[in-house]
Design a protein around this nucleic acid. Sequence first.
DNA 1: ACTCTTACTGAGACTCCGTTTCAAGTTGAG
DNA 2: CTCAACTTGAAACGGAGTCTCAGTAAGAGT
Lengths: 206, 206
Amino acid sequence: MTDFTGTAARSAAKPGLRERMRATVRAEVTEVALRLFIEQGFDRTTVEQIAAEAGLSRASLFRHFGTKEDIVLGDLEEIGRQIADALAARPDQEQPWEALRWAFDAMTLRYETAPKQTLSYLRMLQDTPSLRARHYEKQLRWQEMMIPEITRRLGASPDRPEDPRPTALVAAALACLDAASTGWLACEGAVPLPVLLDRAMGAITE
Amino acid sequence: MTDFTGTAARSAAKPGLRERMRATVRAEVTEVALRLFIEQGFDRTTVEQIAAEAGLSRASLFRHFGTKEDIVLGDLEEIGRQIADALAARPDQEQPWEALRWAFDAMTLRYETAPKQTLSYLRMLQDTPSLRARHYEKQLRWQEMMIPEITRRLGASPDRPEDPRPTALVAAALACLDAASTGWLACEGAVPLPVLLDRAMGAITE
DNA sequence: ACTCTTACTGAGACTCCGTTTCAAGTTGAG
DNA sequence: CTCAACTTGAAACGGAGTCTCAGTAAGAGT
């Protein structure tokens, strides 16, 4: 990171000047990587190349991200937390399936703020197996975050790991979210994502 | 494969003698690998080691399997086909969700024929991310195999890729199957898998 | 302002997965 | 018996991810 005169981000910062640098570097790397991935494809882009263009060493890059996939899948953790929060905020009398449906709007709204960017992101996700795999792992974390709340709403006992209902509900809902996203990509965003999500989740409860 | 005096499989064989050898080798490698994976864990077992103990070279092993994960996940392709066949065989008047439920018995029955073996297999699957990832990829193939039939049963148009309902139904059902399997593992097989599957799929349609 | 601890950095070596090349060997058909 | 097609092991290679080590910069205490 020998030079960063143009990157700004110099002013006030209570939470440690070091933390800010870290965030800046992460953002820079993600931006570079996304561009290269879209230009050349995920598999035909090496971590070496990303590191070089972002101006840091390969080793340092792995300290920031852990895996190549995480470079572009970093925000998913955050999105999962937002969905879980939205779920907990739904009124108590709402049925689990319904509550899940509206909790997902925390994400669909985010999608529709930058449709074009999101579409190419989804496209890359769809035809890169290793990215799909990592994305799925992240969604498993989402599941874990949502299951306690659904367990509560079902009135089920939390210390009964063999009860498949909370897991089934959350996982099935996420499957619908994925199906809706796939459909949204297929029609290039022509039909709004919330509409597709309604159809997907509605098809199961008839 | 310098020696296989005890492995038998010598007698009549119409479908090419060479094909039979291939199948024998595959079975041998899978057996060795499964033992090592359970003994030492998936990640702490190298392909080199498996090849050595199975009596072939690393390169040849990759010619048979493609990836390390496929060594133990080879049958999944076949299971998926069986489920798809079972689905197509369900009576026409059955609702999609119901048809999916009974199609899955093609797999639950298979599980219960060797519970102990299946349980340790599921355990390995559960705490090995790379295996989970590959397993998920295989299930995506299952999806593709089932979607045409569900599309037909819904009376939906096959050339409407943006309709999320067939995908949602199949993916949600598979999510229930996974949730049931997880529950089955959690109680060490105490509750029968079909029962857990009923609860899982029933929880969503209320 | 100076020091000391702490943590981050780049460089490079290493393990392992997966692919490719090549020469040697095997199988089966004519 | 010969030739063509296929399979094998050996070896090198590319790439991801881990680890060690020495150098250096940030932040706290004085």
